[in-house]
Structures are given as C-alpha cells and as structure tokens.
Design a protein around this nucleic acid. Structure first.
Length: 684
RNA sequence: GGCUAGGUAGCUCAGCUGGUUAGAGCGUGGCACUCAUAAUGCCGAGGUCGUGGGUUCGAGUCCCACCCUAGCCA
C-alpha cells in the first residue's frame, strides 16, 4: 500500500556555507526519500533557507548590503551545493517569504486563541550605541566562575559553566564594543509547560533512539519552561501582528518554514493541505535533524503544531555530528571542510556511499577518516561492486552483445532477491550502514561466483560458449540486483548502469524479474578510483587567512579565496596531479633558525621549537622527536611553511610546519639550507 | 559544573535480554588466478574489549569510581 510522506532536513542558515556536516544530514535524508520513492511511495521532500535573526542582520550591516541580498546569495550558494550533492528536494523555499509570514501569523493566532501565549517582562542586555537588545552570544566578558577573559554571555568555553549575561564581569557588546546596560522589555511566551501531557503521549507513540528518549526524559524531569518567541526591533524577521515593534524569534518561524515550503509546492502541484497537515491525518511527516536541535524539534515544534490544531511529526530522526579524522570540524584545527571544497575536488557519490556505510539510526557521532574514506570508496565501490559488471561485460560483448535467455544459477539469484526485503527494512529504519554491509556481502558472493565458474577458462573452448554467456548473464544480473539496492545512495551511477543495461532502474521490485535476452550497451566505467592527492587536499587549510569577524555566528562565509582555488584545482585535475606555478607560489617557504628546542611534556612525538624567522620568534610543534634530540637542533637552519594556518593543539599553538623527508621505514630527516642562508629568506 | 551518549584488532564498525577458543570490512603478509579500473579468490597474522575496583559459577555485556571524546543546559 502506498504511503504519503512529507520529509524535511534542517534548514541551512543564511549566515554561512554548508560544510560536510550539513552534507551528512542532507545525504541521510535524501537517501531515505529516494528509497521511499523507489518503493513506490508518494514522498515529498521540502526544505528552505533559514533567513531571520540577529546574525543575518548584523552580517548584512557589516557587509554594507541588505539582509535580502545576503539571504538571496546564501540561498543560491546552498542550493547549488545541495544540487551537486545530488540532493533532490521537491521544493527549496525560504523562511523570508509571503507563505511563511502567512503561516506564522496563522499559527500564532491559533496559539493565542488556544490560550498558549502569555506576556511578561524580561531584563536584557541593551547596547545604547547600536540601539538594540543583545542576544546572549553578543555579550562577552570575563567568566564569573573561572575568570577566563572574553567569554560568551551564556556560557564559558574554558570551564564549561553556564550563567546569565548579567553575571559576566566587565561585559561588553560585540556589536559596538560598548558596555551594555540592562533594560526591561515585554516579551511573548509560548506556554510549553501547558503541553507536557500531550508531549508525553506523543513521545510515547513513536520509535525513538534510546539516547534521544533519555534526553527528553531529562528535560521533562527538569520541568518544561515557557519559551520566549519574540524579539525587539531592530530585528530581521516578521513583526508580530498584535505587538508592534516585536518580531517573531527566528526559532519560532524556522520550523514553520517547513509548512511554508510545502505551501509553495502545493501551489505548484495542487496538493491537498489537510492531507499533510490536518490533525490526525494518515500521511506521515518526518524531520531529519542533528542532535543539537533535538529540543526544538521534539518539544517546541510538536507543541506548537498541536497547539495550533495541526498534526504532529510522525518521526523526528536525530543524527550525531560529523568529525574529521576523529576531530571536531573546526577551522582552527584545519578540519573544517566546506561542501564546496569537497565538490570542487571529488564527485558526490563516494561521499554519499561513505556516509551511508557509516550511518545508523542512533545519535552517535560519525567519523570521516580520510584514509578510510579513500579505501572504502576504492575497494568497496570500485574494487568489488562495479568490478562485477566490469568483469562480466566483456564476455557478453564477445558473445554478441546480448544477455543470455536464462540464468545459470537461479537459486543464487533468488537469494539476492530475498535479501532485498531485509535490506529494505534496514533502509526504512535508517540503518544504512547495516544495509550497506548486507549489500557488500552479496557483492563478495557475486565475485566468488564468477571466480568459481571461471568464464575466462571456459571461453578457451568454443563448445562452451553458451555456458560462458550464461555465467556472465548471471553475473550481470547479480550486479543489477545490487545496483537497484544501491540506487538511493548512488542515483547517478544507477542512471549510468540503466543506460548500460538498456533498462533504467525504476522500482525496488525490478529485482524480481531478471534481465534476460536484451542487448547491452558498450560498457563504460561506472566509477573510478579516487585520487589520494585530491582526498588529502580536503583538509589543507585555506591559503588566505580569513579575517576575524565580529559576528560570533559567522562561521563560514564564502571565502574570497575559493574561486581562485577552484580554478587551480580544476587545472590540477586536468593535468593529472600536476599543479601550476600559482599553486606552488601560494606556499610561503622560508629559511628559519632554531633558537631553542625542547620536549613537549605529555607527548611522545612532539618537540617544541622556537624559530627565528622574522621579527618575532615563532613557535612550531614538530613531530620529529623520534629522530632528533632537542640539543641537536639548536642553531640549525631549517625550512618551514610560513603561511600555514596556525593550529591549536593540546600542547599549544603551532604556527607553521618544519619540512622533513620520510619514507616507508622509520626515521624522519630534516631539510636544511646550506650555510650562508639567512633566517627569513624565501625558498622557491 | 549537571545531564545524555560513545570509548572493542593499524583504520572504520558489529557484538540481542551476561554463557563454549570476541566477529566483519578495509589495510597488511603469503599463495592462486589473469575475465576485470594493479581488479578477484584462498590462507594467515593482529585485540589483557578506555582505566581501576566490585557482583556472579561465569562480564565486552550488570554495578561503582575515574579518564578521554561529543552534544544539551532552553
């Protein structure tokens, strides 16, 4: 029976580029959507640009443009990233839209009518110079607990304690730099506490990861607090209809953007609103989100929907965060990878495959180990899966280019078909990793099958020609079954395979009927190995140092350097791994003299070097302790990468890299300069 | 700081309600094969299951403490 589903992933915020964490969520959602469609269900997939709030307003001011211009450019960039990641939204809309304003007003009116809105006064930091109220993140000062300087108004990054901005010592506004004053202002509150019984009932209804359930239980125990849904002018957002000068808080209007995006789609396709949003409807609503916004989606959002007389979500699917090589993604650690940086270098499907192979239904963080990524893509995808088609295609071609009329081993094929339901159940439960393991086990079986029947040996005897064809036909059909199962993950490859097979993959159930007697197109490689050099480039720090921004939420604006980097990396790809002079000249190599060297306490590998390079001595942490004693180094001339982005390590900041040679065996060997060279000289 | 989760072979992960010699894939060593994008098949090596206690006939699996990582604290 065909289900009706509406699916979303979290809205990207208009104040930064998408990174691989966003990509993970989009890919997870897209795979589920494509899977549902392949199973014959009616599945809509909507998303929108999240446009409102103080960060967007301030950033637009800083850049001297209107918020509308900024969010337009951001939406265009995000949409292009999603497109290139093969994310297939039915609708990508905007929270700054007529539809969303209408929806916000309607929901607000309904909540007010239901008695779920209250008003009360709050005391808040106010910047008299900028003439605006300051969100907690825009007040910085000394932590009241541990006295660390320059901490946010809501929590200390050093000691981890949380507090109110008023407790901060020597507070100042990050907008104007002035000391804030405290002012009263009347705000609107959503009475979440009144929804507890309903929420408990709703939470009990759906399947949820144990970790999510435990966390929600904790929130209930702590008591549900009313939620401030208004902000004072100036604010970039929608004005509250019955409260002039007050605006809906961005987190109020953002999830309503899901409805607004649906509305835009409804207008285009003539859909039925009630079928998707009316209370008690039989259609399904699924949200895919990160664990950081579980509170909003598991408490506020269903409460707002229900309070306004609408349906609640069928599922809120929470995923963990993406780490890179075991580390949190961050610019200062050099592990920040934007979606564009990836897409400029590598195709989307290996990434989709890698994410799928590691995703489960739980909230555990997922590590993208770049060596693992390379190995998995090359060995699983190319070495074992695509290889099945590749090794059989030649036999078909030499037998006349047409598949045989029957399978050599129907029982084995039936096993592949039977596995389909198990795999489908895993996709449905979002246990993609388990599904992929299942599929790759089948791929191993397929390769073993071909190995066992040795068509290349049979082909030496012309009398065995029918047998050769039958074995190759079997192999191609096993490949096709797996390609169907991988279609949600690898849509583009599936299309190419459809071209090769002469029949596109159109439904999960295509697997029930083996492909026989039809001509095959000439085989073209369906995937190629990833170039390790390009994978390694993913974590290189951006060449142009990014300017520190006053807006704390500005985490990844479109860097000016990316266009140039794109160009040169394109060249690099075309030139088969060669780089141009441009690329080389971006690396600032310098001669430096070692002033002092010492072992780093607590590390087995590192030496702390102080280098004479320019006016200031420079600290570099170098992993050469196994080969050099500190006293051997003092006074030596070495070569350093001078413009490497400083990297914060557990033992301090390392500002540069000392060049060494190393090979397969033990030992690293320092590069030096002949005598006469002076510290600071450029190496070229 | 409080809370929620995770810490299992070089890497990434499975291990259900505690029960015989802890599994898989990748990587690695050897062999075979040569149809296939140096692909594939077979065989092998690799783990005191974060640390320290405890419960039990028996613990990766339960309890306690601690360490490390991530998220949340509206």
């Amino acid at each position: 029976m065909s289900r009706k589903l509406l699916v979303t992933h979290a809205l990207p915020y208009a104040n930064g580029s998408l990174h691989l964490g966003h990509s993970l969520e989009a890919v997870q959602t897209d795979i589920w959507v494509r899977f549902q469609r392949l199973r014959g269900h009616d599945c809509l997939f909507v998303c929108a640009e999240d446009c409102h709030g103080t960060p967007v307003m301030i950033r637009a001011q800083q850049q001297g443009e209107t918020p509308e211009a900024l969010i337009g450019a951001s939406a265009a960039e995000h949409l292009r990233d999603y497109h290139d990641l093969l994310i297939e939204h039915d609708q990508f809309h905007s929270t700054h839209s007529a539809e969303n304003q209408r929806c916000c007003n309607q929901l607000y009116a309904a909540l007010r009518a239901a008695g779920l809105i209250s008003r009360r006064s709050v005391r808040q930091a106010y910047d008299e110079q900028a003439r605006m109220f300051l969100p907690d993140r825009y007040v910085r000062g000394i932590c009241p607990r541990c006295k660390s300087p320059d901490q946010y108004g809501d929590s200390c990054e050093v000691c981890g304690s949380t507090y109110a901005p008023a407790e901060l010592l020597e507070p100042r506004s990050t907008v104007s730099g002035s000391a804030p004053v405290w002012r009263e202002s009347e705000h609107l509150f959503f009475r979440l506490g009144a929804c507890e019984a309903m929420l408990r009932e709703w939470l009990a209804s759906g399947a949820r990861a144990p970790a999510v359930r435990a966390k929600l239980e904790e929130w209930f125990t702590a008591g549900l607090q009313d939620w401030d849904i208004s902000r004072d002018a100036p604010y970039f957002g929608f004005e509250v209809p019955d409260a002039p000068g007050k605006y809906f808080y961005v987190w109020f209007d953002a999830p309503i953007g899901y409805i607004a995006s649906f509305e835009a789609l409804r207008a285009r396709r003539g859909l039925d609103f009630d079928l998707y949003w009316k209370s008690e409807t039989a259609s399904e609503l699924h949200h895919f989100i990160g664990k950081d916004i579980s509170y909003f989606h598991n408490l506020f959002w269903p409460a707002v929907l229900h309070g306004a007389g609408l349906r609640r979500p069928t599922g809120v699917h929470v995923h963990g965060f993406l780490t890179i090589n075991g580390e949190k993604m961050s610019k200062s650690r050099g592990t920040f990878i934007s979606a564009r940086r990836y897409l400029e270098r590598l195709p989307p499907e290996p990434l989709r495959y890698y994410f799928a192979a590691k995703l489960g239904a739980g909230v555990e963080d997922l590590d993208m180990n770049l060596d693992d990524f390379l190995a998995r893509s090359n060995s699983d995808l190319v070495g074992k899966f695509v290889n099945i088609a590749s090794r059989c295609a030649g036999f078909i071609e030499r037998s006349g280019g047409r598949l045989g009329v029957q399978l050599a081993d129907p029982a084995l094929y039936a096993e592949f078909v039977a596995a389909g339901e198990r795999i489908a159940a895993l996709y449905e439960q979002r246990e993609y990793g388990a599904a992929i393991r299942e599929i790759m086990t089948l791929a191993d079986q397929a390769n073993r099958y071909v190995d066992l029947h040795k068509p290349w040996a049979l082909a030496k005897d012309p009398a065995q020609a029918p047998r050769v064809l039958a074995v190759a036909t079997q192999g191609i059909n096993l490949f096709r079954a797996l390609m169907i199962y991988l279609t949600p993950v690898l849509p583009r490859m599936s299309e190419a395979a459809g071209h090769f097979l002469g029949v596109p993959v159109s439904a999960w159930n295509d697997v029930a009927t083996p492909l026989l007697g039809v001509p095959l197109a000439a085989y073209q490689p369906l995937a190629t190995r990833l170039d390790p050099a390009l994978v390694a480039q993913l974590i290189e720090a951006p060449s142009a140092p990014t300017l520190p921004s006053a807006a704390p939420a500005a985490i990844g604006g479109p860097a000016g350097a990316t266009a140039a980097a794109a160009k040169s990396s394109e060249k690099a790809q075309q030139g088969g791994g060669m780089i141009g002079m441009d690329d080389f000249s971006r690396i600032d190599l310098r001669v430096a003299r070692v002033i002092s060297a010492e072992r780093v306490e607590g590390s087995e590998k590192l030496l702390r070097l102080s280098l004479e390079l320019g006016a200031e001595p420079r600290q570099v942490l170098s992993g050469i302790r196994s080969s050099y004693a500190p006293e051997q180094l003092v006074g030596r001339l070495v070569i350093v990468v001078a413009n490497l982005e400083p990297r914060r390590m557990r033992f301090g900041v390392s500002a540069g890299m000392v060049l060494c040679a190393s090979g397969e065996g033990d030992g690293v060997f320092l590069l030096g300069a002949d005598s006469g060279a002076q510290p600071g000289m450029k190496v070229s």
